[in-house]
């Protein structure tokens, strides 16, 4: 018998120790009671406040920033990559995106507060020209604020992951379409977007997950004032809520479920959109 299977042993060991065990722990713990028996109460509690709102907020923030970040990132990447744009613009944008996509957490929250907080320099500049956004219902310390700040890393992440797909759009496709009589709009509708669609979908799923799990940025910005699921879990970690540690596991389990549903919606879409590749 061949011993080739030995090669995958380290991988299996790693997957078991660091992927399966924590997941199993969450899965089992979510259904345990403090007394040690099994119960559905923890999961049922997820549908009560404040957890219900936390899930709603988390999903909304993730969807909005994945869609907006995805579209804006796509347009920015395309305009930087297309023919006729000087090469240094592309280089600059890629480098900036590499940094910005990873610039999250407390420093990012701080940077935005210093700029667009009530006394931020940006806010003051706008007030100076007669438009104080805080007089018009805007606040950085709301869900909208969180979404704006998240876009700061969502857009660059989109630029990084979608750039190779845009590079893959061949000049010949555009020119062939054009010589066959297609307008630019018709090219995008029939060729450009359908070809990019599989990459767009997977990039947006990545963006969704990225926002869904983000914690420190939102916490730094609102100190927990806007409930998000990771922030609720954070309360359990920091020991602010003592009565039921299994509720923390149930929250994590809930996140798994949301991401799982996301994948369930994504897989058939992906299959349809990439039919022509197989």
């Amino acid at each position: 018998m061949s011993l080739a299977w030995l090669g995958v042993v380290p991988f299996l060991a790693y997957a078991t120790a660091f992927l399966l065990l924590p997941a199993a722990n969450v899965l089992i713990g979510a259904f345990q009671s403090n007394e040690g028996g099994y119960t559905l109460d923890n999961v049922r509690t997820l549908f009560d406040e404040p957890y219900r709102t936390a899930f709603k907020n988390s999903i909304e923030v993730s969807l909005v920033t994945a869609l907006l970040g995805g579209i804006i990132g796509l347009l920015m990447a395309y305009s930087a990559i297309r023919e006729g744009t000087p090469r240094w613009i592309r280089g600059g944008l890629t480098t900036f995106s590499g940094v910005a996509a990873n610039f999250a957490g407390i420093p990012l929250a701080f940077a935005f507060i210093a700029t667009f907080g009530i006394l931020g320099v940006g806010t003051q500049a706008m007030t100076a020209v007669g438009f104080n956004p805080y007089d018009h219902g805007f606040s950085l310390f709301t869900k909208t604020g969180i979404e704006i700040v998240y876009l700061y890393f969502q857009i660059p992440l989109m630029i990084l992951v979608i750039a190779p797909a845009i590079d893959g759009l061949r000049r010949e496709w555009r020119e062939a379409a054009s010589s066959l009589g297609a307008s630019s709009w018709q090219f995008w509708r029939h060729i450009g977007v359908p070809i990019l669609l599989p990459s767009l979908l997977s990039a947006m799923v990545l963006l969704f997950g990225n926002a869904f799990a983000a914690y420190a940025t939102a916490y730094g910005l609102t100190s927990g004032g806007v409930g998000l699921v990771p922030i609720q879990i954070g309360f359990f970690l920091s020991g602010d809520v003592f009565d039921n540690p299994h509720l923390g596991q149930a929250l994590a389990f809930g996140m798994f479920v949301v991401l799982g549903l996301m994948m369930l919606a994504y897989i058939p879409l992906q299959r349809i959109s990439s039919r022509w590749m197989k």
């Binding site: 061949r170 010949e172 062939a176 010589s179």
Partner: peptide, 12 residues
């Protein structure tokens, strides 16, 4: 116009 190669729309 006929190009050197790979000009067919891959999604069709």
């Amino acid at each position: 116009m006929v190009f050197q190669a790979y000009s067919l729309f891959p999604n069709m």
